[in-house]
Each structure stands twice: as structure tokens, then as C-alpha cells.
């Protein structure tokens, strides 16, 4: 479950306060997929960052699963990102000096896991990257990089998947592969918050949140 209650997030820039999210409330029940749509600057990425505990809200309350993020210290929020929250970024954020396989294995730096290597290979194989195990990010296409980032996100079988424009930089074929994997994760019971400003095929959201200027408009 992902629950935002009257959440505000303000940024300060040159002494001015810029509201990125303004009193946003919604709830995504466990196992459901919510699609967040809206133009650039409408607060979609901020919503993902808040749900992932990558930054703190200015006001309001956020609950992920059965735990409130509000008073969790940074290390506890980090633990949650290791165990049950996964984030897929629009810009992949792969570590440039690690191979595809090593990037997928990065979460083991936080918590070791049995058969980690086997699982990483399996995920990369499922995402069509079995030929790219030893390739570095700059040796892969944008679609391959995003699939690699998705494999990394799915490595620990998260209960919550937060995907920020995961197909934003991909060709239709790669986009389809990524969305199918996200859909499969949902089928396995994960709760998904998917941000996209493009039309999404191959996936059927349980709810759609339309955003504009930091507000949910429908």
C-alpha cells in the first residue's frame, strides 16, 4: 500500500519557495498499479522520491506498506529501499564502471542474498540481456540500460515498485519489454507507482492520477 495524506513538498531556490507537491492525498492499495500522468514539472518525480524516502516531505504523512516514513531516520529509510522498495529511474542511474551483471548485484552490498549471482543472471536473461552480462553501461543501448536498471530494482523482489518514466528514453520495443516486466511484478503482488507522461500500452493500471502543478486533478 502507498498512502499520501495532505503531502506538501516545497523547494527553496534563490530565497523563493517553489511548491513541487501541494497537499496531495491518494492511496494505492497493496497489489495495485497506479499510473501517474502529467506534464513536466507537475511533481511526478517528487512524488516518486518522497515515496522512496529519497527526500522528506515538507508537510503531510506518507505510509508505505505498513510503515509510516514520516519519522524514519535516513538509515531506516535506506533499509526499506534495500528490502521492499525499489526505484526505477528515468535516467537509469547505473554505475558506469560496473558491468550489467555487477550493477544488478549492487543491492548485495546492502544485504547479502543466497544465489545472488544466479538470480541476477536470471533477471537479466528474462529481460533479454543474457548477452550483455559483462558489458558496461556505455556499451549498451538506452533500452538495454533501462532493462538492466529494472533488473537491479527487481533483484530483491520488492513489494513496492516506484518507476519514474521508465520508458521515457526507450524505443517502443524496449518500452514494451520494460512494461511487461513491471506488469509481471504486479501480477506477483507488488504495488506499483508508475510515472509517465506518455501513453502507456501493454499495461492496465488499476488507477490513474492526473497531476498538474503539484496537485492531483483527477
Amino acid at each position: 500500500m502507498i498512502k499520501f495524506e495532505n503531502v506538501c513538498k516545497h523547494y527553496r531556490k534563490n530565497g523563493n519557495i517553489i511548491p513541487a507537491l501541494d497537499n496531495v492525498s491518494f492511496e494505492i492499495p497493496a497489489g495495485q498499479l497506479a499510473l501517474v500522468r502529467g506534464p513536466s514539472g507537475s511533481g511526478k518525480t517528487t512524488m516518486i522520491n518522497l515515496a522512496a524516502g529519497l527526500c522528506r516531505q515538507t508537510k503531510g504523512s506518507i505510509t508505505i506498506g505498513d510503515m509510516s516514513l514520516d519519522n524514519l531516520p535516513p538509515n531506516e529509510r535506506a533499509k526499506r529501499r534495500t528490502s521492499d522498495i525499489a526505484v526505477v529511474f528515468q535516467l537509469f542511474h547505473l554505475v558506469p564502471y560496473l558491468s550489467a551483471l555487477e550493477n544488478v548485484l549492487l543491492p548485495t552490498l546492502a544485504a547479502s542474498r543466497e544465489n545472488a549471482d544466479e538470480r541476477a543472471r536470471m533477471l537479466l536473461d528474462e529481460l533479454g540481456l543474457s548477452e550483455r552480462l559483462t558489458h558496461f553501461p556505455d556499451e549498451m543501448s538506452a533500452g538495454e540500460r533501462q532493462r538492466c536498471a529494472l533488473a537491479r530494482a527487481l533483484f530483491n523482489e520488492p513489494e513496492i515498485i516506484l518507476a519514474d518514466e521508465p520508458t521515457g528514453n526507450l524505443d517502443p520495443e524496449s518500452a514494451e519489454k520494460v512494461l511487461r516486466q513491471i506488469d509481471q511484478a504486479k501480477q506477483r503482488g507488488a504495488t506499483v507507482l508508475l510515472v509517465s507522461h506518455q501513453p502507456i500500452d501493454h499495461i492496465h493500471p488499476d488507477m490513474i492520477l492526473e497531476m498538474d502543478r503539484g496537485n492531483i486533478i483527477e
Partner: peptide, 16 residues
Amino acid sequence: RPELGVFVALGIPGPR
């Protein structure tokens, strides 16, 4: 720093 951000985002502990 961006790389540091990736590690933090993945939940890797600060001391590590």
C-alpha cells in the same frame, strides 16, 4: 556525488 546518490538510493549503508 551522483554515484554516491545511486548507492544511497539503493539503500547501501553509509559506512559501506
